[in-house]
């Protein structure tokens, strides 16, 4: 389908998308888009590409911080639980060992720390990524099926202040994209 048809018929546009064959081309295009003043964009790749997120302006990765907090909470929960169980809730003498048998509590404290930290790693990553997400406009592009297989995409979103549909499409064509399409919202 031709570009004009799409533009006239679509009520809303998510952005403009360019398709590339290699991660290097995608990286170069992202750099150019950034230099051209675009800020609201996203790059899509079938595998992690070193430096790609930084190129499109991503700065702080908060996953590690969340995991640290999760781990501390887990350790405190585990040790607190055991102390409370053996000293407060159900104090009784086992083989003459003290009520507060802290050397015996090290293993469980360690396990709860790891458990909480690991669950935090998965769920904080998913939450910050906004997953699960059953619908996203980029999937409206038929070629985007290959974003998880062997193709690399750059999508400049229509919410970007510099986004002008014709200019942006032309800009993407100039980056040497193999294919440029409009992403319906």
């Amino acid at each position: 389908m031709s570009q004009e048809l799409v533009l006239s018929e679509l009520p809303a546009i998510h952005g403009a998308m360019a398709e590339f064959d290699t991660p290097e081309e995608l990286l170069a295009a992202c750099e150019r888009a950034r230099a051209a003043g675009y800020r609201r964009m996203d790059a899509y790749a079938p595998m992690p590409v070193a430096g790609l997120a930084e190129t499109i302006g991503y700065k702080r990765n908060k996953v590690a911080f969340c995991v640290l907090i999760g781990g501390i909470c887990g350790a405190m929960f585990g040790f607190g639980l055991l102390e409370w169980m053996t000293v407060v809730a159900y104090p009784h003498n086992v083989g003459g060992r003290p009520l507060n048998s802290w050397p015996a509590y090290i293993p469980i404290t360690f396990e709860t720390m790891i458990l909480f930290a690991s669950l935090t790693a998965l769920f904080s990553m998913l939450a910050m990524n906004g997953l699960p997400k059953p619908y996203h406009p980029v999937f409206n592009v038929p070629a985007f099926d290959r974003a998880s297989i062997d193709k690399f995409f750059l999508c400049i979103e229509s919410s970007d202040p510099n986004f002008r549909i014709e200019d942006t499409l032309q800009f993407l064509r100039d980056t040497g994209a193999r294919e440029v399409t409009v992403v319906p919202a």
Partner: peptide, 21 residues
């Protein structure tokens, strides 16, 4: 797949989470 779409920023967090795991 939870609607995974391979966004660069997602990959970044994903890799960090995977490394931490």
């Amino acid at each position: 797949s939870l609607g995974w779409r391979g966004s660069a920023i997602h990959w970044h967090r994903y890799q960090k989470a995977y490394l931490l795991l």
